[in-house]
Amino acid sequence: MSIPKKAKTQLTELSIRSLGVIDSAEIEIGSGLTVITGETGAGKTMVLTALNLILGSKSDPDLIRNGEDRLVVSGKFQLTKELIDQAEEVGGQVEDGELIITRSVNNQGKSKMVFGGVASTASQVSEFGEELIEIHAQASSARLAKGSVQRNLLDSFAGHEELSSTYVSFFEEFNKNRKRISELKNQLQARDLEISKLETLVNDYEKVKPKAGELAELDNEITKLGSIEALNTGISQVLANISGEDSSIISLLYSDKRTLETLVGKDSNLDKIIERFADISYELSETNLDLERYLANLEADPHRFDSLQSRKSELNAFVKKYGRGEDREKALS
C-alpha cells in the first residue's frame, strides 16, 4: 500500500545579526540536505539558537554579541496551503507562499516579534512554529513519548486526517457547550445570590419599618429631651420678664396701648402706628401664652429618651447596611 507524501513546510532562508560569535550571516537553504560544518566555536550552535528564537523560545540578552545593542534574527519559510490560511487568519502577511518571522532582543532584555509583518508575541508564534519546522537534537526522540504526538503519527499513517478533523470539530463544540453551561450555572448562582440579598433587605425593612422624616423627628426630640433643664430655665426667665408680677413687659405695653388709644383720630398717620402697636401687643400676649403652655408640657422622660436613642440606632444600622450616599433620609426612601 503506497501512502501519498504529505506537503511540508521548508525553511528557505535564515538571517543572523549580532548573535553570539556571529556578527552577520545570511544562509540560503535549498531543497534536499544542507550541511553546516565548522570548528568548535565557529557558531554552529548559534544557528540552532537563531531558529529557536525565531520559533518563540525564551530570549536572553546574554546572547547579544559583545559591543552590540541588540540581536536580530529572521527566517523565511515556504508554507503549505493549510498553514498559509492559518497564518493569514492571525493577521500574518504571506507573499508567494512565503512567511517571514523576525525576532529582535535588546541589551535590556526586551524582545520584539514580527510575524509576517505584524507585531506578535513569542507564545503565539511558538504555537504556530510547531508546524513550521522540527528540530532534532539530543533526547529529541523523547517527544515520541507524548500521547499527542503518537496520536498524530497514527492518524497520519492511517490517513485519518478527515476523521481527526471531524473529531476536533465535535470536541471544540463540546467544550463550547460545556463553557456555556458553566457560564449559565454561574449566572444562576449570581441570580440566587441577588435574590437572597433582596429577601434579606425586605425582611430587614419589615422589621425596621422606617417612616419618611423619622430620623429628623428623632433627632429633634432627642435633642429636646436632652436639654430639658436648659429649656426650663430659659423659658421661665423669659416669661418672668414678659408677664412677671413686677413691671412686666406685657403690663407696660397694655398701659401704653391704652394711652395711645386716647389719641386715635387725631392724626391718620399716627392711627396706623397705633394699630401696629396694638398688633404687636396682641402678638406678644399670644406668644406669652404659647410659651406658658410649652413650659407646662415640658418634662423629663428618661424612658422615652432611651427608647428614642434605641430607635435611632436601629435606623442608622439599617442605613449603614443598605443606604447609599450621605443623605440618610434618601437612603431610607
Rank of each mutant, 00 (worst) to 15 (best):
I133R: 00
E134L: 15
I135M: 10
H136T: 11
A137S: 13
A137E: 13
Q138S: 10
L144H: 13
G147M: 08
G147S: 14
S148F: 05
V149P: 01
N152P: 00
L153T: 04
D155G: 04
S156G: 08
F157L: 14
L163N: 06
S164E: 09
S165P: 01
F170Q: 02
F170T: 03
F170A: 05
F170Y: 13
E173L: 10
F174G: 02
N175G: 07
K176C: 07
K176S: 15
E183Y: 02
N186I: 05
N186T: 13
N186S: 13
L188I: 14
Q189N: 11
A190Y: 02
A190G: 04
A190R: 06
D192Y: 06
L193E: 13
E194S: 14
S196T: 11
S196Q: 12
K197G: 01
T200C: 04
L201W: 11
L201M: 11
V202K: 15
N203K: 13
D204V: 09
Y205K: 07
V208D: 00
K211Y: 06
G213A: 04
A216K: 13
E217G: 03
E217T: 03
D219V: 11
T223A: 15
L225T: 03
S227D: 10
I228K: 00
A230G: 02
A230T: 13
L231V: 04
L231I: 15
L231K: 07
L231F: 11
N232V: 04
G234N: 11
Q237T: 13
Q237D: 06
